[in-house]
Simulated assay, not measured.
Amino acid sequence: MVNVDGASGSVADGQVVSIPDLCKAAAERDPVLGNGFTEIHACHPRAVQALFDFAGHKLSGDVEIVNHRTNPPISPSPALPLDTGGPAAWYPVIDYDRCTSCGQCHDFCLFGVYEKTEAGKVVVAHPSSCKNNCPACARICPETAIIFPKVGESPIDGAEITDEETQKANVKINVDELLGDDVYAALNARKQKRRSLLNQKKIDQALEERRHCSEKEE
Rank of each mutant, 00 (worst) to 15 (best):
V4W: 07
A7F: 01
S10V: 10
V11S: 13
G14W: 07
G14R: 05
Q15Y: 14
C23N: 13
A25K: 07
E28G: 06
P31A: 03
V32H: 01
L33Q: 04
N35R: 13
T38S: 07
T38N: 04
E39C: 14
A42N: 08
I65H: 01
N67C: 14
N71A: 11
P76K: 01
S77V: 10
A88Y: 11
W90Y: 09
I94D: 01
D95M: 10
Y96D: 04
R98E: 06
T100V: 11
T100L: 07
F111G: 02
G112V: 01
E115N: 03
T117V: 01
E118V: 10
G120D: 06
K121I: 00
V123I: 15
P127Q: 05
S129K: 11
P135Q: 05
P135L: 03
E143W: 08
A145Y: 08
I147C: 05
K150E: 07
K150S: 09
G152R: 14
E153Q: 11
S154A: 13
P155T: 05
I161G: 01
D163W: 10
E165K: 13
K168S: 05
V171W: 01
K172W: 07
I173S: 00
D176E: 15
D181A: 15
V183P: 00
L198Q: 12
L198I: 10
A206F: 05
L207M: 14
E208H: 10
E209N: 09
K216I: 12
K216C: 10
E217M: 12
E218D: 11
